[in-house]
């Protein structure tokens, strides 16, 4: 297949990749760009483990043809979170609240949390649950995850004064 080249900003850094146009974004990130933090759970859109952010929006990397992500697009994966204040606050809150058990869902879960807080500084519990409904966790029963996100939202708002 004729390969195409795309230049993206991945976790704040310019990256270039060459791939067959319908290669899954998940495979380009993990294998071509070496970003193994993003996980494949189901590979069919049901679990959310592969969630990444493209231009501020959470998407499923297992269902996205990488060629559909245009040049200059900004991609954030779980590896990029600790470079951001929101990401660091979220990580700390997830740890403190015991929101991660086996951890398999967490890369996708916390990326969804990041996307939410970047768009809504003060989400209520309903919005937190709805925005994470596409992320399945078999371990925690979600309660601690919701608490972690609420805690992170409060700290973040405190820091920025918003």
């Amino acid at each position: 297949m004729n390969k195409i080249t795309r230049s993206w900003i991945v976790n704040g850094e310019p990256r270039e990749a060459e791939f067959a146009p319908v290669r899954r974004l998940l495979d380009v990130l993990r294998e071509d760009l070496g970003l193994k933090g993003t996980k494949e759970g189901c590979g069919e859109g049901e679990c959310g483990a592969c969630t990444v952010i493209v231009n501020g929006q959470p998407v499923l990397a297992c269902l996205m043809a990488a060629g559909q992500v245009e040049d200059q697009a900004e991609i954030v994966t779980v590896e990029g979170l600790e470079k951001t204040e929101t990401g660091r606050i979220l990580q700390q809150a997830y740890i403190e609240k015991g929101a991660a058990q086996c951890g398999f869902c967490i890369p996708g879960m916390i990326v969804s949390s990041y996307a939410l807080l970047e768009q809504h500084a003060h989400p209520d519990a309903g919005l937190i649950r709805e925005s994470h409904a596409g992320n399945i966790c078999r371990c925690t029963g979600y309660e601690k995850i919701v608490e972690a996100i609420q805690t992170a939202a409060e700290r973040r708002a405190g820091n920025t004064g918003s």
Binding site: G45, P58, L60, S112, G134
Partner: peptide
């Protein structure tokens, strides 16, 4: 429909 990710895609 689905979760947020599916609604966005």
């Amino acid at each position: 429909i689905g979760g947020f990710q599916i609604q966005i895609m």
